[in-house]
């Protein structure tokens, strides 16, 4: 009996222990490890084992990747990260059977009826859309502007709140040169920026991103897991020094536009023209203005929901229809 117990448990004792000590797989920039086994603050480099329950401190532009057991963590934002938080929870493991069933389900959805195809398409939107780096609906929900082209007008940048954040840092960056055009810190979850006052070049591509300035206890994202709602999502947009009325000229000249008594219908036509010209933020405003005029107009509600769905704001779109 004893022999059986030894044979069963010896491998468990022999394996796994060294792998559980976090190992730094990649380190760039200024990174320190404070309060570890040595009790001192030590600089962190690739190949260092992070022993004890210390705290990682990342400077500006630093990045770090570490593995403990088979858990992978990547840190790219400046801040302090207690090691106990980074590897506190076991990553949610999906078994082989689950992954197999998911794979078959996706395959069936993509080869089924037109309705299924649409659903599969929507589920894959996050990866398919060119202007977003990967988070799909979860990463885009509540973010505005969410891509397209922007006018040189006051624009409200909006993002969802993060409970752990004390403030937010928003950046507007030139996507080609990575030059930072603007950095601002705010306590709110929105910021009004007059784009005509920024040094933006006509027809250039930029992205904006927002980082919650996390309290010490907040955890960074683990690669592959559901990321925090806003951190790290880059939203690309094109800036065009063009007049709004110029874009709307083909619509405002129409007899239907001039002849209608309904302001809501005018906003609807404008929204469609703006979306057609890729001015998504302006189109969104036009839909909202239309809804403000006639909140119960089913045509505007459905057109707005369809617009939101097309641009990855599916949760909002669903709510818009379900409240009816």
């Amino acid at each position: 009996m004893n022999k059986v117990c030894i044979l069963l448990f010896l491998p468990l004792l022999l394996c796994g222990q060294p792998q559980d000590v976090p190992l730094v797989m990649y380190a760039a920039g200024k990174i320190d490890y404070e309060g570890g086994a040595s009790g001192k603050s030590i600089p962190v480099y690739t190949g260092i084992y992070l022993t004890g329950q210390g705290r990682l401190s990342l400077g500006e532009d630093a990045s770090l990747e570490a593995i403990s057991g088979d858990q992978f963590v990547r840190l790219t934002s400046p801040g302090r990260y207690p090691l106990s938080d980074l590897f506190a929870e076991e990553a949610r493991e999906t078994g082989f059977i689950d992954r197999f069933i998911n794979f078959v389900r996706r395959g069936l959805e993509q080869s089924g009826t037109a309705e299924d195809l649409e659903r599969a398409y929507q589920e894959n939107q996050g990866n398919a859309q060119g202007n977003i780096n990967g988070l799909g609906d979860a990463g885009l929900s509540g973010l505005l502007p969410f891509g397209g082209t922007l006018f040189p007008l006051p624009t409200t940048f909006t993002w969802p709140g993060d409970n752990a954040a004390t403030s937010y840092r928003i950046r507007v960056v030139d996507s080609l040169t990575e030059a930072v055009v603007l950095t601002a810190t705010t306590r709110d979850t929105s910021l009004l920026l007059d784009l005509s006052g920024l040094y933006l070049q006509d027809n250039h591509r930029y992205y904006w991103e927002v980082f919650p300035n996390a309290a010490p206890s907040s955890r960074p994202s683990r690669l592959g897991a559901q990321a925090p709602a806003v951190a790290g999502t880059r939203i690309y947009f094109t800036y065009r020094d063009r007049d709004r009325s110029q874009v709307l000229a083909p619509v405002t000249g129409l007899p239907m536009y001039r002849g209608t008594a309904s302001e809501a219908q005018r906003r609807l036509l404008e929204a469609m023209a703006l979306e057609e010209a890729d001015y998504l933020y302006a189109a969104d405003r036009a839909y909202r203005d239309g809804l403000a005029e006639e909140p119960n107009n089913p045509i505007i509600r459905r057109a707005y929901a369809a617009f939101l769905s097309r641009w990855n704001q599916r949760s909002l779109a669903r709510n818009l229809i379900r409240t009816r």
């Binding site: 792998q19 190992l23 797989m25 593995i67 088979d70 858990q71 992978f72 990553a91 949610r92 493991e93 999906t94 082989f96 992954r99 197999f100 794979f103 683990r222 592959g224 897991a225």
Partner: peptide
């Protein structure tokens, strides 16, 4: 398919 779809991306064998 097995390499690309059925592996657990959360797990990294260092």
């Amino acid at each position: 398919i097995l390499f690309s779809q059925l592996r657990d991306p959360e797990r990294v064998d260092r």
